[in-house]
Nucleic acid binder design. Structure first.
Lengths: 234, 234
DNA sequence: TATGTATTGTGATTCATATCACAAAATATT
DNA sequence: AATATTTTGTGATATGAATCACAATACATA
C-alpha cells in the first residue's frame, strides 16, 4: 500500500463541486468560495492519517469522498470513536478549541479531503448565518449521538454492540445489507470495546447461527431481525 | 423533599445579572435581552427534573445557579452522562435538533434556570456572531470531553473511573479537596458504569487505604497522588 | 514466486465485577 | 417519636470476557 499523498489544487473540480450543499452545515466550503483560492484538495489512500492527535491544526478539513475513522489514544489502547463517511467536516472541535488535535482521523478507504483556510472559514461563519447554523446543528447531532453510543457501549454486552456495529454499517454507512467490512477485527474490537478474539468468536457464532454470512471481509446480513434482537439483547 | 416548582419572573434580578458574560458562549441571554420580556427564571429544588427525556422542548434553558445531572435511559438502566454546574446552557442539542429531548436533566442541588424564548435565542445567534461563536466553542468542547470520557470509561477499570469521578468533583465542580458528594452511590454507579455495591466497596477501600476520608457524604481527598495513580491505574 | 508481516481462528485459564441476598443505617414522612 | 422508605455495607457465588498461547491463513512486497 503506498501512503504517499500528493497535494493537487483542484479548483476547476471545485467549481462544479460534486458535493452539493444539501444542508448548510455539510456543504463543502468550496462552493462558498468564489475566488477558489482558499482551499486545496488532497487525495488520501486507505490507511493514511489525515489528522494526527497531538499535532497543531491549521486548517479546517472537509471530507469530500471516502470513509474515515475517528480514533484517539485511550488509557490502555487505541479507541475508535466513530466511522464517518463523506460528506462531513473533520475535526471541527479542534478547529475551534485549542488547536491541538485531540484525536486522529485515518482514511479507511481512499479519500478526498478539502482543506480550508481557517480564517476564511471563520469569516464565512460570521457573514453566513445559514452556514453557521448548519454547523451548530451538526455539532448538536454529534453530541446526542455520542451520548447514545456511550450509554450503549457501556451497558450492552459485547454481542449487542457488535450487532449494533453491523447494523450501523448496513444502515448508515453502506446503505445495503451486503458490504465489505472496511476495518480489521482488531479495529472492530476497538470500536466496539472488546478484544480482537471476542470479535472473531462472535462473528463465527453469528455466521453459524445464520444471522450473517461471511466470505472474507464480505458481510451479508441474512437475518436482520435476529441481529436486532441481539442488539436489544438479553 | 418538596418538589413543587414555581415560576417567578425576575426581570429586576436579571437586569443586574449576577452571571456576567465572561465568555460569550456561557453568558446568560438575559444580559443580552434589553426588553427583558423574552425570558423567565424558575427555581428548582434538589431532585426536580428540569428537562425530561421524550418531552417536547419549547425553550432554551440556561442554568444560572446550582448543579444538575444529565442522564438518559440506557438499554438496561439509567445512564448519567455528566454532572454540570452553573453557568451553562442546558439541552442545546435538543434546541436545535428534533425538539424532542433526547435526555433528561435533573437538579442535584437547588437550582435556578433561565428559560429563553427559542425564537429570541435564534435571532440572537443570527445578529450576534460573538455569541454564536461562543456557542459553537462550547459545543466543540463538549464533544471532545465526550470522546475522552467514553474512552476512559470503557477502557479503565472500575476503581480508575471512580478515582476520576472524585478528582473531577474536586477539580472542576467544587474546586476543593473537601466536598459533599452530591449524588447517591447508585447514581455514582450509573455515572461511572459499575454497580452500586462496587461503589460502596471501593469507597471503603479508598478510605481504608488512606486515600480519602469519608464521613457520611462528606468526602475529603487525603492523598491526591494515590488517587491520580489509581486513575492512571494498573 | 518466495518470504516476511499482518490478520484471523480456537482452546484453556484467569479475573474483575455483576448479581443475589440480606442486615444495618440513615432519611423521609406521618 | 414512630413508621416507612431510601441508602449503604458486606459476604458468597456466578459469569462474561480478557488474556495467553499458538496455529493457520491471508496479504504485501522484495
Amino acid at each position: 500500500m503506498n501512503h504517499n499523498t500528493y497535494i493537487c489544487r483542484m479548483e476547476s473540480d471545485c467549481i462544479k463541486c460534486s458535493v452539493k450543499p444539501k444542508v448548510a452545515g455539510v456543504a463543502c466550503v468550496c462552493c462558498l468560495d468564489p475566488s477558489k483560492t482558499n482551499h486545496a484538495t488532497v487525495q488520501f489512500v486507505k490507511g493514511d492519517m489525515i489528522i494526527k492527535q497531538g499535532n497543531y491544526s491549521t486548517n479546517v478539513a472537509f471530507l469530500r469522498k471516502g470513509m474515515v475513522k475517528i480514533h484517539l489514544a485511550g488509557p490502555s489502547h487505541e479507541q475508535i470513536v466513530r466511522i464517518v463517511k463523506a460528506p462531513a467536516y473533520l475535526g471541527l472541535p479542534t478547529t475551534f478549541g485549542n488547536k491541538i488535535n485531540q484525536y486522529s482521523i485515518t482514511a479507511i478507504s481512499d479519500a478526498q479531503v478539502c482543506y480550508i483556510d481557517i480564517d476564511f472559514f471563520r469569516a464565512l461563519l460570521k457573514e453566513n448565518e445559514q452556514f453557521s447554523y448548519g454547523i451548530i446543528l451538526e455539532l448538536c447531532k454529534n453530541e446526542l449521538e455520542s451520548f447514545r453510543r456511550c450509554a450503549n457501549r457501556t451497558q450492552k454486552q459485547a454481542r449487542g454492540n457488535l450487532a449494533d456495529m453491523i447494523l450501523d454499517f448496513a444502515t448508515n454507512i453502506f446503505e445495503s445489507d451486503t458490504f465489505l467490512l472496511p476495518i480489521s477485527q482488531s479495529e472492530m474490537a476497538n470500536l466496539v470495546d472488546t478484544s480482537r478474539e471476542s470479535i472473531s468468536r462472535m462473528l463465527s457464532e453469528f455466521a453459524k447461527d445464520g444471522v450473517i454470512r461471511m466470505t472474507g471481509k464480505q458481510l451479508e446480513i441474512v437475518n436482520k431481525n435476529s441481529l436486532l434482537l441481539i442488539s436489544q439483547n438479553g
